[in-house]
Design a protein around this nucleic acid. Structure first.
Lengths: 212, 212
DNA sequence: TGTACATCAGTGAACGCGCGTTCACTGATGTAC
DNA sequence: TGTACATCAGTGAACGCGCGTTCACTGATGTAC
């Protein structure tokens, strides 16, 4: 209570940045207890604000959660794009870097990842949310297109299919093995090694020779 | 209220099979609203019993959920084993049938699947739960062992790795695309087609030639 | 630069609700003799 | 076969609690002139 009062004195009557503070609070609470493990009132409390205040910024808990997810997709897209690096040094390497970036995101931002994929939000709850998700997937798709273009014309699989395969591999590994602290199975290899080997085998199956 | 009274008259003071009825109620509620979307009291209500009754059978909501998951793993194991069919007609085909069985389970039993993989239960919450999960995975592992044994001695990957890859592929596809009614992305191909093509490419990458 | 005023972003009290949990109880069932 | 009794599996009333939500309010900020 003491710190709360002090904080109030510091910040004055108006918070100034409550919207972002609530998103931040939600992220911390999700990281602690999962996307189902916090309430609207919790978020308000964490932000040091009365229980009625969040209503000035979000219609309800789901709207807050959707904003966390939307923000997550934006950062996710940026991270994947960095991994892709416009196809440098070459499409195949860059594609695998996208996979690594995917896993790195799931690992370093488990709260965002959970809000994006495990909160049970309908993807079209909100147009911006859907758009943000689509933009992130577009990175994967672009990468897949560049990779299949490397194959001889006769044996190119559909790029969309390949992008979906990659998504499924990365998501499968991330959600089964890629959560550091969430008491998961113990294995003789890391999630990163699993994803890398899986992608290598998959690419070999597409016709790429493994000599690199 | 009428039907409740009538049902009471039908069944008398004792329910007779409340434990199973609660698990069944939980499954239905999970199917409707997700693993986080029901309460202990809900389950009691669905089973037509007072809110205090479940305490005679389960310590709390998590214990009930864990039992749903345990039962789910048992059926899952049976379904995977049926797909495997002791490696008939041949290891490769049987392996792919395990993949199909995995997806079929996720699709036909979304409530079990959610309790098993998305309820956020720690896998070692309970020894029986963990054991049931391990037994299901053992089917995958057995299948992977038979498959790698087909390869020439020099190029066999570790069977455990292959089993984990298969698990990740199936889980990735199932959780991203394999939920019928849960308003997911619309795609030009089915989850089944995606998983089958992915597994074929993967197997090809391991060195199996695609002529079958 | 000052002043009046509109608007914004908070407060805190209040409410109804359903949940989890406990408790003494009671009806039904099983068993010993 | 009957009877007494222990045990089991339910009831329903009660409780404290925290949540979601509304409301009139108020302090702070921005803007017109």
């Amino acid at each position: 209570m003491g710190w709360k009062k002090r904080e109030r004195e510091e910040r004055g009557y108006h918070h100034g940045n409550l919207r972002e503070a609530l998103i931040q609070a939600a992220r911390e609470l999700i990281a602690e207890k999962g996307p189902a493990g916090f309430t609207f009132a919790d978020a308000a409390r964490s932000a040091g604000v009365s229980a009625a205040a969040p209503y000035r910024h979000f219609r309800d808990r789901d709207a807050l959660l959707a904003d966390v997810a939307r923000e997550g997709f934006q950062r996710f897209e940026a991270m994947l794009a960095t991994g892709w690096a416009n196809g440098r040094p070459d499409a195949l390497t860059a594609f695998q870097n996208v996979g690594k970036a995917y896993l790195a995101f799931a690992r370093s931002e488990p709260a965002y990842y959970a809000a994006m994929f495990e909160a049970g939000l309908p993807p079209d709850l909100n147009a911006e949310l859907r758009a943000a998700g689509d933009r992130a997937f577009a990175v994967l798709r672009t990468a897949a297109e560049a990779v299949v273009a490397q194959l001889p014309a006769g044996q190119r699989p559909p790029a969309l299919m390949m992008a979906l395969h990659a998504w499924a591999m990365a998501h499968g590994i991330a959600s089964l093995f890629g959560r550091g602290d969430a008491g998961r199975r113990s294995l003789p290899m890391t999630a990163e090694e699993l994803l890398e080997s899986q992608m290598l085998i998959y690419l070999q199956g597409l016709g790429f020779t493994g000599n690199r």
